[in-house]
Amino acid sequence: MNFFKAVVNFFKTRVLLWPVLLLNVLLVVGTGAVFAFGGLNALGLSSLFSSSSNERDSQVVQAVTRVQEVALLSLHIEGVTRNESNGEIFGVEVPESKKTTLIQYKFDAKLGIDGTQVKIEPTGADTFRVSIPRFIGIGFDNPKFEDPLESSDALSWLTPSAVQTRMMNNVLSDENKQKYITQNEAALMEQAKAFYSGIIASVAPDITLDFEFAG
């Protein structure tokens, strides 16, 4: 009888241990969840305070224009551009403050016409008039500028250095394009005649052409 009571008391004790074991399991799982949640929060906070950079260049083509530029002449140009400046104090030039900058350059200047503006109109049975628009500077190919050379007087430290990009832009300016056109106008006219005469003769060799150039 005493043995039977002892066995019953043993099983009663084990049954009462389940809530304790369950509570321990819940505590372990809860603690793990807290650490996991805390870890996620830590990751979240670290990402919150981290930094990153990203650069993008977005371009959109707004319009496409057909260009039919006809190059008639290519001029190889070589030269030296020069800039001289003096220091001033209160608007008065300082003696011995001259600073001279020289840049040697070379490039090919292309001259021609806008082919879309050329008109070919019949003037008789076998004659046509070819109207040539104004000559234009198409562009500069293979520009090369050497390193600048600078000479200075004793007080040249009062004089700011020349802006080299401005000197280069002056060399490749529209004014210079027009100067090259004026200097080579006769050659441009002859080349325009030869160019269009060759094209038309390949199709209709018996046609007589009369050329008219824009003033």
Rank of each mutant, 00 (worst) to 15 (best):
S197P: 05
K193D: 00
P122D: 02
D174C: 05
R66S: 14
S52C: 02
R66T: 11
Q178P: 03
R134L: 09
F145W: 05
F213W: 11
E93Y: 05
Q183F: 03
E55C: 11
F140H: 00
L172D: 05
L48M: 04
V80S: 10
S152C: 10
G91C: 01
V28W: 03
K12F: 07
I103M: 06
I103Y: 04
K110L: 14
K5W: 01
S74A: 13
A204K: 06
I89Y: 14
E88N: 15
F211H: 04
S85M: 13
D153Y: 01
E78F: 03
N170E: 05
L40G: 08
N83W: 08
T123Q: 01
L23V: 14
V20A: 06
T101V: 11
V61H: 03
V25Q: 02
R14L: 12
A194L: 15
L149G: 14
V130C: 04
F213T: 13
R134V: 03
G112N: 07
K5G: 13
A154D: 12
G139W: 01
S131N: 07
T81W: 05
I138F: 10
K177C: 02
G137D: 01
A162H: 01
V94I: 15
P160W: 14
N24Q: 07
I207K: 07
S52H: 10
D210E: 13
M189P: 10
S151G: 10
L155V: 07
L21Q: 06
T159E: 12
K144V: 03
S152H: 00
E150M: 13
V203Y: 08
S47M: 12
F4S: 11
G198V: 08
I199G: 04
V118I: 09
M167P: 11
S173F: 08
P122Q: 05
F195W: 11
I113D: 07
R56Y: 12
P19A: 06
T165E: 09
G87V: 10
L75R: 07
S173H: 04
F213I: 09
F135Y: 12
L43S: 12
K193Y: 04
L149S: 12
R56V: 15
K119I: 15
L17A: 08
L22V: 09
E150G: 06
T13A: 13
Y196C: 04
Y180L: 09
S58Y: 07
D114M: 05
R14S: 09
F213H: 09
L73T: 14
T81C: 10
V171G: 05
I120E: 02
